[in-house]
Design a binder for these strands. Structure first.
Length: 577
RNA sequence: GCCCUCGUAGCUCAGGGGAUAGAGCAACCGCCUCCUAAGCGGUAGGUCGCAGGUUCGAAUCCUGCCGGGGGCACCA
């Protein structure tokens, strides 16, 4: 375990026991990062009252019993009763050497859980928008991170591939002809296809009638209709995949688990719930009423599982989905990386599934709420209102802007190399922008800020990694060959080393709290620490070969943590920038 | 009306019981004969929405209020 706070906590507990008796040995040592030292121990303040002694006296008594000489260069009582700990440079150096010898860089393997993750979930024949971008990017980062922690992640792309709009879409596809240029829009500009179908539906009573009939045929399993439906899906998934590829997202066709997957189970679910009295017919619809869910005027809010026209909504498919994930996939945790507005609905689905016995207490469903993306007016950014932003256009523009910068900054490189870098930087910038803010907070969408290439951004982290690589390129050495020994003499080295040791803890936190932005914050601070080190501590120019070897090792460790961390986020690190 | 969520520097956001509340952007001042200046160092900028409460200690926990956003029966 590379993270120093584990060891410090152990030592402080032992000290507490020695100073105040065994019954306090299990007290919270309250080790925290400190702005006045490497760490601070806050235990004395919390224990002062319990012991009936002044906090500073408690701190002094604890200090007298602490055995930290091998780890800390100084331990002192400070302020009202804090203990400030500063780690020994030699100890830190040894820990970094340990990190370099560890191919997991201090990330512990956790007890294996099966974790289906529901994310991305775009709709067939529709453009992916900024909302999809966020669930896709956040979900993918969680999938990568949990996998790295040793879990069995099952990606579930719950695409919208069923429902009444398909009558209209199929009729439109039939009219424009399969293989036509119009049909090809499904791959490149799905909204154009959808809107054309919609326009016909709204403008022609005859078309609308045929569309409705087509829905019936689709549900009845009419072979021709089914074939056309599959064609729609094939074209749409080609579009999704092209976006995923551009975004460097790990989703593939193997992860498709669309709504239609559960069609055959829906009637059975309804019958079962109705027979057991969990669902009742109300105003013609089959509903589940749950205690504690009331809406307007105190009226109970139902989870509708069968509409009054006999059709099924997403409540029913969501129940089928959760049952499948428990029964067939043997899930331990189920992640729903879905928009925050759906929180109530999901709570009701979970509660219904629990009531039906499909979701045992041992299985934890978690809604990873994705905050709405707002326009500059502070209102929700919808594709309908205002100028819709096509995801494809957004990604292309990100790469274009990066291209302009790379072309200008690195005219020495050939065109292909520059294009490759621009792609990694542009896409990385967009993904990092989505990942670096808390997933449940709403944020104001701003092209310029998202695509900015300075500050707390993906490109800043990529640049830090590129600078390390540049050092090794210049040295003609491989990072893997830089193994130390690590001797720390400069403050910037000390700070960098300390930072490096925190990686495993942060990754574990991300897996636990499901908050990738914590990893972003960590990596940004690591990159900042490296930048300061880079400015103040010449690596190749170091005269003392021992110092040079040590700094190379610190650089190598930084590179590995940065690249690994960025990889967990789904962001690539270019070789040079 | 009920429920969820947010309110922290001019802007975008971290921080979710501990010291003088942080970062980026924007502003201002410095730094390329030296491993990539997409960088580094510094200055300035905040009654943490308001009011109570709990606590030795509250931006953080509790209650109320104000303000923004969202949700609340057949679109998913």
């Amino acid at each position: 375990m590379a993270d120093p706070s584990h060891l410090l906590a152990e030592r402080v507990r032992a000290g507490l026991g020695a100073a105040f008796g065994a019954e306090l040995a299990d007290a919270d040592p309250a080790i925290r990062p400190s702005q006045f030292a490497d760490y601070q121990v806050n235990a004395a303040l919390a224990l002062a009252k319990r012991l009936g002694r002044p906090p500073r006296e408690v701190a002094a008594a604890l200090l007298a019993q602490l055995q930290l000489d091998d780890v800390c260069a100084s331990v002192e009582v400070s302020g009202p009763g804090f203990l400030n700990l500063t780690l020994r440079d030699e100890w830190l150096g040894g820990q970094v050497e340990g990190l370099l010898a560890d191919d997991r860089l201090g990330v512990a393997r956790e007890e294996r859980q099966v974790i289906p993750i529901d994310y991305s979930a775009p709709n067939v024949a529709k453009e992916m928008h900024v909302g999809h971008l966020r669930t896709t990017v956040v979900g993918d980062a969680l999938a990568r991170t949990l996998e790295h922690l040793g879990h069995d992640v099952i990606r579930q792309n719950h695409i919208g591939d069923w429902g009444t709009p398909f009558g209209m879409l199929i009729e439109h596809l039939l009219e424009v002809g399969e293989g036509s240029k119009e049909a090809g829009l499904l791959r490149s500009d799905p909204n154009a296809f959808y809107q054309a179908a919609r326009a016909k539906f709204d403008g022609s009573a005859d078309f609308a009638t045929r569309s409705r009939a087509r829905v019936v045929a689709l549900q009845a399993g009419d072979p021709d209709t089914r074939r056309l439906w599959r064609e729609l899906i094939a074209l749409s998934t080609a579009y999704f995949n092209s976006i995923y590829e551009q975004l460097d997202v790990t989703l593939t066709d193997d992860d498709l688990a669309g709504e239609s997957t559960y069609n055959d189970e829906l009637a059975g679910i309804c019958d079962d719930l109705e027979r057991r009295g969990i669902a009742v017919v109300d105003e013609g619809a089959l509903c589940v009423f749950l205690e504690g869910y009331t809406g307007r005027e105190g009226k109970p809010v139902p989870l509708i599982i069968r509409k009054s026209d006999g059709g099924y909504g997403y409540g029913t498919t969501d129940l089928a989905t959760i049952r499948h994930r428990v029964r067939e996939l043997h899930a331990d945790r189920i992640l729903y990386v879905i928009g925050a507005p759906q929180h109530l609905h999901l709570q009701m689905v979970y509660a219904t599934a629990r009531k039906a016995g499909w979701l045992p207490d041992t299985v934890e469903p978690v809604h990873v709420q994705i905050g709405n993306v707002l326009g500059s007016d502070g209102k929700i950014l919808k594709t309908r209102s205002g100028a819709p932003i096509r995801l494809r256009a957004l990604l292309d523009e990100a790469v274009e802007r990066a291209t302009a910068v790379v072309d200008q900054a690195r005219s020495d490189l050939d065109g292909d190399t520059r294009a490759q870098i621009a792609h990694q930087v542009g896409i990385g910038a967009v993904k990092y922008a989505d990942l670096s803010v808390a997933h449940d907070s709403e944020y104001v969408f701003d092209f310029d800020r998202m695509l900015a290439l300075q500050g707390n951004t993906g490109p800043y982290l990529q640049y830090a990694a590129a600078r390390v690589r540049s050092i090794f390129r210049k040295a003609g050495a491989e990072p893997a060959s830089a193994t130390g020994p690590v001797v720390i003499r400069h403050e910037a080295e000390h700070t960098l080393a300390l930072r490096l040791l925190g990686f495993g803890r942060v990754v574990a936190q991300v897996g636990d709290a499901l908050e990738p932005h914590r990893l972003c914050t960590y990596l940004f601070e690591l990159a900042q620490s490296f930048m300061a080190f880079y400015e103040h501590c010449p690596v190749l120019g170091a005269e003392d070969p021992v110092v040079r070897a040590s700094r190379l090792a610190l650089s190598a460790a930084t590179l590995r943590v940065l690249v690994q961390g960025l990889d967990l986020l789904g962001v690539q690190a270019p070789d040079q920038m």
